[in-house]
Amino acid sequence: MAKQIFYEDVQVGSEVTTLEKIATTRMLVQYAGASGDFNPLHYEEDFAKNLGVGRPIVHGLLKRAWLVNLMTDWMGQEGTLKRLSCRYRGMDYPRKMKSFEDPVDGDTWYCKGKVTKKNDADHTVECEIWVENSKGEKNTTGAATVMLPSKAK
């Protein structure tokens, strides 16, 4: 766990600590089981092709969960996530696996954020957030508000 961040530590323009993620088809199946989202779009080649997205894609909901993870890791145990929203603007494709040890090369996703506003009244911090793939495409973008503990008690 990173050490606790305080309201006074951040300024408008401060960066949220980047969180790195990968996704393999196996991880998408695991997410499907854990979330109850069994849409075949995320594991059936022909289904994805017929829908017009080429091949199975990463769940929007998983990318959303990564953004939640970005914010909760950053705010620490004493922070509170108040709001989060995101939109899906493009498709992301999982890595494939040749063996247990060898997920083939493919995208790494970088979950990032930047502070856009501070509210002194309630110690909340507003951020723009996004998931960027290895090509620098921001296919998932959104906003989040967290409440941080204050040093001035």
């Binding site: 779009l41 909901l61 108040k82």
Partner: peptide, 11 residues
């Protein structure tokens, strides 16, 4: 055809 468009949460 259907796809997820996005979401907003208030916790």
């Amino acid at each position: 055809g259907n796809l997820d468009g996005g979401m907003e949460y208030e916790f």
